Computed example of a mutant assay.
Amino acid sequence: MGKKLNPHEDGYDAKLKLLQIELVKLQRQVISSGSRLLIILEGRDTAGKDGTIKAITEHLSPRESHVVALSKPTDREEGEWYFQRYVAELPSSGEIVIFNRSWYNRAGVEKVMGFCTDTQYKQFMDSVNEFESLIIKSGTQLIKYYLDIDKEEQAKRLKSRETDPLKQWKISPIDQQAQKKWKDYSLARNAMLKKTSSALAPWTVINANDKKLTHLNLIRDLLARTNYQNKDKKLLIFDSKVVMPCPPLGNKAPNLAP
């Protein structure tokens, strides 16, 4: 008797391929029009940012698409304007750039782990909307995603990292604090979404408990929110239980893991 398919997995590869064809169309449009697209992926530790980025970029031209995952700032960078090192990574004409974590480190891990002062945190929260407004008004399209998972799913994924030799590089002291500081991260996430989901650059929360549904639905939403020729709109219907737009500035956010 054959193996019974998980309904979430049935047809995943075929669905992803069709969406990746749409992504290639999008990139062709970005290149030909000289436009700039910036995608920010934030989220819980183990929420699946790496896998999602791989699904997006797998068939894109590496010359015009870049993934930015900055390491800990150097001593010199510590003395710079906070946004300075990120500005250098913003897309140029005809480019798609994906930030695997971004300036929102300050609103998340730095806040929770005590890597910034209360003053630095407040300065960031008070200025980030204006900073993003300048980016957008200069002609860059900015799309922000927050990948959220529940505590039990995160525990399972952290355990998998410990036993899978191909995931050993992902283990870090910060990840090991994720479960202990779960509530603190939840509070920081809520404050960030409430203060920084602006009308120009709103957040979209992704229920990332199922990795394959995450990939398919995030890509559908991304494609639906961008302009390109020969768009196959029937492919871009996303699951509203996975893709949850966050209302702008202070309005009630989607139901998230507490």
Results as ranks from 00 to 15, higher is better:
residue 12 Y to A: 04
residue 13 D to G: 00
residue 13 D to T: 12
residue 14 A to C: 06
residue 15 K to P: 00
residue 16 L to V: 10
residue 17 K to R: 00
residue 19 L to C: 02
residue 20 Q to A: 14
residue 21 I to R: 01
residue 22 E to F: 00
residue 22 E to H: 03
residue 23 L to A: 03
residue 24 V to S: 01
residue 25 K to I: 04
residue 25 K to F: 13
residue 25 K to C: 06
residue 25 K to R: 15
residue 25 K to E: 11
residue 26 L to R: 11
residue 26 L to H: 11
residue 27 Q to K: 14
residue 28 R to T: 05
residue 28 R to V: 00
residue 30 V to S: 04
residue 30 V to A: 11
residue 30 V to Y: 10
residue 30 V to T: 08
residue 32 S to H: 12
residue 32 S to F: 08
residue 32 S to I: 08
residue 34 G to W: 03
residue 34 G to R: 02
residue 36 R to M: 03
residue 36 R to P: 04
residue 37 L to W: 05
residue 39 I to G: 04
residue 39 I to F: 07
residue 40 I to K: 13
residue 42 E to Q: 14
residue 44 R to W: 03
residue 45 D to Y: 11
residue 45 D to L: 07
residue 45 D to W: 08
residue 45 D to I: 02
residue 45 D to S: 08
residue 46 T to I: 03
residue 46 T to L: 08
residue 47 A to H: 07
residue 47 A to P: 03
residue 47 A to L: 01
residue 47 A to Q: 08
residue 49 K to D: 05
residue 50 D to L: 04
residue 52 T to E: 08
residue 52 T to C: 06
residue 53 I to H: 10
residue 54 K to W: 02
residue 54 K to Y: 02
residue 55 A to F: 06
residue 56 I to Y: 10
residue 57 T to Y: 09
residue 58 E to C: 07
residue 59 H to E: 07
residue 59 H to K: 03
residue 61 S to D: 15
residue 62 P to E: 08
residue 63 R to K: 15
residue 63 R to F: 13
residue 63 R to I: 10
residue 65 S to R: 07
residue 66 H to W: 04
residue 66 H to Y: 01
residue 66 H to F: 09
